[in-house]
Nucleic acid binder design. Structure first.
Length: 421
DNA sequence: TGACGTCAAGATCCG
DNA sequence: CGGATCTTGACGTCA
């Protein structure tokens, strides 16, 4: 079983993608952006290796206008050595990669031009996979598309257009149930007619269930049969509802308890799990740690080093509780560990605990800081106290000092995740 | 015509 | 002038 995340890293400095708008998309600009994005991709791969993350979805934004005539660069060739080096890392570390064109890539549209662009977009995605690792286990995930007032006809059109795709694309293409239109049952029907494996999105199935509310473990088994040996371990998508947003919106983080309790549905079945969640890699590491049968206290200590000031900002009590928990040198209390952290992060920080955390962080920096940096900190802190500047403004100032003085403990701290880019 | 979702670029405002 | 904040882009479907 592998657990992975989608597209970007949270809390790791300097890993943001670049893009450009169409009117500025000169070949030179595009080449610079791609060069930057490939460097970022390489850092993501390294992060995955460091954290034993074996499943990874790459952003479609990797190559700007990758499926548009705007971009005529031969980026496979121009960046061949970078592709090759990254591909080597991916294969050597048994990392499974994927891509997921968004809601605007519609293969079953009645409009010819839309279908044509969808095929071009699939072509782009397969080119990226082929640059890195063309194993059939690496997948491109696609939704079925619209219904257009006649779902049967729309499904037929999907099947028909699927059959016209190149073998290069078919080798990687898998299909997914969505939250509004196509339910698992219908996607399985299309799978039977096309041979495309089905990735079960368990959250979409909750939001957009079968009329007779068939239990999820039935669909798990049905979807599993659509995967051939060459396709690798069956994949599922797992996410949770954001309680503050519209039904269907993904949560900030994966709840440790809900995840573990959902995992009981698998009852030993081997699947790879892609998490769709705002905090990306952070939830992937969390879920991996929660299910690790050989988990070590040392891992939690490393996690704590990154979370501690963020937790302190929200709650001194939670901070003390985790410290207490980590004092015990035996056992592996991962579930309690994340319970305390996640609970504390749910509430908005109050001003006094936020100031307390700022002062703790400042403690790492004040020896290196110059006099005017001291002054600036005192000024911003006072403004924040009086409500005339935001917490993030103060944190941004501290983050600049962290980078300037390369403070090793703080540079990896999630305390700065909102202000580091 | 706006909502949906996604993220940064681009534009504009502010001190 | 630099930093903070608001708006736009790029895509297709559906109410």
């Amino acid at each position: 079983m592998k657990i992975g995340y989608a597209c970007l890293l949270v809390g790791v400095a300097g890993t943001g993608f670049k893009t450009c708008i169409k009117k500025n998309a000169t070949q030179e600009k595009l080449q610079n952006v791609i060069d930057h994005n490939l460097r970022v991709l390489d850092r993501m791969i390294d992060y995955n290796i460091d954290h034993d993350i074996g499943l990874f979805r790459m952003s479609s934004d990797l190559i700007p206008f990758g499926s548009s005539p705007v971009n005529t660069l031969k980026w496979e060739e121009i960046f061949s050595s970078q592709w090759e080096a990254m591909g080597k890392k991916i294969k050597e570390n048994n990392m499974r990669i994927s891509m997921h064109p968004g809601q605007y890539t519609v293969l079953n549209s009645p409009r010819k031009e839309v279908v044509k662009r969808a095929v071009a977009d699939l072509e782009y995605h397969v080119r990226v996979l082929e640059c890195l690792d063309s194993s059939q286990k690496n997948k491109i995930i696609l939704h079925i598309g619209g219904a257009y007032g006649d779902k049967r006809a729309a499904m037929d059109r999907f099947v028909e257009n699927y059959r016209r795709l190149s073998d290069r694309i078919k080798k990687h293409l898998i299909i997914e149930n969505d939250d509004k239109i196509y339910r698992v049952k219908e996607v399985l029907d299309i799978s039977e007619r096309t041979g495309a494996p089905v990735v079960l999105d368990v959250f979409h199935d909750k939001i957009n269930p079968d009329p007779d509310h068939t239990p999820v473990d039935y669909w798990l088994r049905q979807c599993q049969t659509t995967w051939k040996k060459e396709d690798g371990t069956p994949k599922i998508h797992y996410s949770e509802q954001n309680p503050l947003k519209q039904p269907g919106s993904h949560s900030e983080t994966i709840g440790g308890d809900s995840f573990l309790s959902w995992m009981e549905n698998l009852r030993g079945m081997d699947v790879d799990i892609m998490l769709e969640v705002k905090d990306k890699n952070l939830s992937a590491v969390k879920c991996l740690n929660l299910v690790d049968p050989r988990g070590k206290m040392k891992t939690l200590e490393q996690e704590w080093a990154r979370y501690k000031y963020l937790v302190l900002e929200h709650s001194q009590r939670a901070y003390d509780q985790v410290r207490e928990l980590l004092k015990k040198k035996s056992g592996y209390p991962a579930q309690s560990f994340y319970q305390i952290i996640d609970q504390s992060l749910k509430s908005e920080p109050d001003k006094s605990s936020a100031v307390n955390a700022l002062d703790h962080v400042w403690g790492h920096l004040k020896k290196s800081a110059e006099e005017r940096e001291h002054q600036r900190y005192r000024l911003l802190l006072e403004r924040y106290r009086q409500g005339t500047c935001s917490l993030n403004t103060v944190k941004k100032h501290l983050w600049k000092l962290v980078v300037k003085y390369q403070e090793p403990y703080l540079i990896q701290s999630l305390y700065f995740k909102e202000v580091m880019d």
